[in-house]
Structures are given as C-alpha cells and as structure tokens.
Computed example of a mutant assay.
Amino acid sequence: MEQVFTDDRGTAQSVQGSGTLEWWQQGGRWFSYGGHAIFSRMAGQGEPLILLHGFPTSSWDWSRVWPMLSQQFNVLTLDMLGFGFSDKPVDYSYSIEDQADLFQGWIEALGLTSVHLFAHDYGCSVAQELLAREQEGVLPFRISSVCFLNGALFPEVHTPLLIQKLLKSPFGGLISRGLTRRTFERNFRRLFGGQNAPDQNDLNDFWYLITYNNGRGILHRLIQFMEERRCHRNRWVGALQRAQQPIRLISGTADPVSGAAMARRFRELVKNPDVVGLRNVGHYPHFECPWDVFTNYRDFRKRIAERS
C-alpha cells in the first residue's frame, strides 16, 4: 500500500508499503518484560528517537508520521504494557512508573547511550518520569531532547471527558467491561478537530487495538494514571522546569482535554517556552495532520543541531 503526503512546496510525496494495521503488526517484533510480551517497532538510521504513545490507544497512533520520521532518524516505539499488541494482564498494577521502567530497560538493553523522546498524552507522563530520573542521575543513558504532543503535563488544567471520569470511578470495572463500540466512537470522535477526523476504517483500527486480547476489561486499571498525575504533580512538573535539554510542545489547540489551556500553562510555567500551536487540530495531531507535526519536529531538531 502507498501512503501519500505533501511536502513544503506542495508536492505530493509517497512512501511505499505503509498505511495498514496489518503492515504495522507485521513490521514489529516482541520482547519480554516481566514475563509479558511487548510489541515494538524500529526503522531508519541516525540518532535514536523514541516515540511514546497515549491512552487508550497504542504505537499505531504514530503510523502516519512514521515513514517521514524514519527517513531521517532511527525511530523506535513500543506498545506499553496493557496497550495495542502487547500483553494485557488482568491482575496487574499498571502505573506510569512501571511503564517508565519498561522504556528504561528496553533502551538500556538496546545499548543506546543517548535518545530523543517524542511523546503524546499518557506517554508525556512517562517522558516526564524519565526526565526526573535523569535529573536524579539514575538513568543509564542521556535524554538529548523532548518533544511533547497533547498531554496532561499540568493536571490542574486537564479536562477529562465524562467517560474517562466514569472509568476512573469506583464503577470503572463495570464501565470498562461494558464499553460498547458505539460509546467508544462517540467519545473518541470528540477528541479530534475539524481538519481531519478519523473515518470508519480508522475507527475500526482503533477499536480493534483497544479490544485486542481483552483490552476492554482493563481500561479502568490503566486510567488510574490520572490519579498518578495528581500525586506526582510536583515531581513531573518540576522535571520540566529543571530540564536542561531542548523541549518543545506541539499543541493541537482544538483538543477539548489538553489543548489550548495546556499550552498556556506551559508558557506560564516553563522557562523560555517553545510552543507550536496547530489550529483546528485536536488531541491526535500526529494522526490528524502528520505532515505538520513532522515539519515542526524536524525544525525543532534542526534548531538543536545548529546550536551544537
């Protein structure tokens, strides 16, 4: 299959062999973490770039920007435990700290001494935890830069959807197991802006990955990260404020849960804030407008290279 995008000059470009969920799965490999199978993907050459996905989706979120990024960088990603094609154990204490352990161990096992991080949503919190660990001197590798896409970097301005509040409630288990496709699609569509909402095929793929291997039954366990964000707020916000490496936020400003208000808070609390706003774009900028996300990330990296 061929994926087509438009470059800076308005010229149509294409990348062969990309675009389907089957292609994404077949191009991956699995490794073991605590006895659980973790799905991962790697492509490209150059400096290692780690992609961290969001909730409740998976690394597939990056599929539209993957061909462009992998032409310039050594791109690596995985489905965190409980997501996508990775194992989804029912009796497990899911946490941001555990997912950070997963990434830390994976990067160390690969023998990487420095990495760049590109994180979205849930992955933003994992990246913040990794930043905090680096500042404590406990990481075996260096974080060279961090780019964030829409995520609850500052929990005080995060506005979750009603379905998210219900999943986090004492009735979360019932809500999770009883989640219907219709309810999922209605709520998921609300996260997108007016520029490029998902079509039915896209929704089919997202639903398949969420429900794969009984994933619907653990959503209430995964979403407890919202409470983690509140409890670890000072640690994770402090990591942003103390960071010495370049940091950029690319924000879809039409995102109803972590859009314009999150970008404003970033400008208020982070020294010398580097923020790029994407108008009419919602919570999944890398899926809604992959070329815009790629060009803004590429420019971020070019600026870093020019300084060094």
Rank of each mutant, 00 (worst) to 15 (best):
Q200D: 14
I223A: 05
C289L: 09
P273D: 11
V157W: 07
W30I: 11
L78E: 03
Y212L: 14
P198Y: 01
H158A: 10
R186D: 15
V257M: 15
G82K: 06
A100H: 01
S70C: 13
R242K: 15
Q71K: 12
D205Q: 15
G194H: 07
R190D: 08
E22C: 06
L161R: 09
L153I: 08
D255C: 02
R216W: 03
V65M: 01
Q224M: 11
D199S: 02
L21A: 11
Y33E: 13
T6H: 05
W207M: 07
H120I: 10
S258W: 01
A243F: 00
F55D: 06
N150W: 05
A132V: 06
A132L: 09
L269D: 02
V90D: 12
S93A: 15
W62V: 02
Q164W: 13
C147Q: 10
R189T: 09
I250F: 11
W23M: 14
S70H: 00
V257Y: 04
L112C: 02
R9V: 06
E156K: 09
E288L: 03
A152R: 03
R133D: 05
G111H: 04
F103T: 07
L112F: 13
L269G: 04
G17R: 06
R190M: 12
N213I: 08
V115Y: 00
D199T: 07
V138N: 10
M68I: 10
D199V: 07
L219Y: 12
A132H: 14
V75F: 02
R181K: 11
R64W: 06
S18K: 09
Y284H: 12
R189D: 12
E134V: 03
A37E: 14
R248S: 13
S145M: 01
F83G: 01
N187I: 04
R181E: 14
W207Q: 04
G178H: 04
P290W: 08
N296A: 12
R181N: 04
G172A: 06
I143D: 02
W60V: 02
V115F: 00
G10P: 11
P256I: 05
I210H: 06
I218R: 01
H286G: 07
L69K: 07
Q99R: 09
W207S: 11
L102F: 00
D7W: 10
F188E: 07
G19W: 09
T253S: 14
F171K: 12
H220Q: 07
Q26F: 01
I250C: 08
R41Q: 12
C231N: 13
L249Q: 00
P256S: 02
E227Y: 10
S58E: 02
L131K: 00
